[in-house]
Design a protein around this nucleic acid. Sequence first.
DNA 1: CGGGGCTCCTGTGCGC
DNA 2: TGCGCACAGGAGCCCC
Length: 278
Amino acid sequence: MPELPEVETIRRDLEGILAGKTIADVDVLDPRVVQGFGPDGGLRRRVAPEDFCSGLRGRKIRAVERRGKYLMIHFERGTLLAHLRMTGQLIFGAPRPEARARIQFSGVGEVLNFCDVRRFGELWWAEDWRQDPSIAALGPEPLKVALDPMSWGKALRRSRAKIQSALLDQRRIAGLGNIYVTEALFLSGIRPTRRCVRIRPAEVEPLVANIRRVLTEGTALRGVSFRDYRDARGEKGRGRDRLLVYGKAGRPCLRCRALLRGVKVNGRGTVYCPGCQS
DNA sequence: CGGGGCTCCTGTGCGC
DNA sequence: TGCGCACAGGAGCCCC
């Protein structure tokens, strides 16, 4: 599923395509994908498609921002938020028959298609995205100074959780998913099953550097298209060819030739090299 | 706080 | 070839 590099690739594409455009109309073909704020405030809930559409009609797009794996399409007032979860896609172009929602723009024939085979993805609307509980709960952005290796590492090393789980926890660090966690731990020589408490102080800086490296390289390659991921033009990313361990269980490690081992860590599949990672 | 199990869904790929 | 099951990049929930 889309992780930080994939969502960032889509963000860059969409910003170039959509900035300055005005929403003419929205077609909601599957009401399950749209949400809004309930009368109690704060909590997100499903809304009637017509309410979702009327909230967006006539809005002019100012900028497209990413926070963790969330996309925020900012208008002059208000924000459309999106999370793609496992199989969500935002593809600009001709209307797609499989789309769950389509956004039309004034004077533009092409539309923004929201597609999602598994329907875990969500679109919702917020007057003030800062009030959104899911955004507010996110940990620091890995590629920004918000993530200070010293203080972050100190907190990490107080946790008794396995490092794989800790890095997937969006409250601790935003934007990582299974692929980039697996790759960063390999580069760092740390087994995914190791407890955070057992991370040595000297391992923290390299870990942060490797997280940043895999995310930066992944973004430069326009993401990993393992299965469903596509950029905002519907094209695959090139990152899959450069993966060192993810999806390669049973094959030899490129560094030491030991056979890579596939394991489950708290229900998530991961891969490590028994020779290079401890 | 950690983590197991379950949930939301559909498609694919493997073993028999 | 066909069937059934495990599994898939996410994340929220309850419960122990």
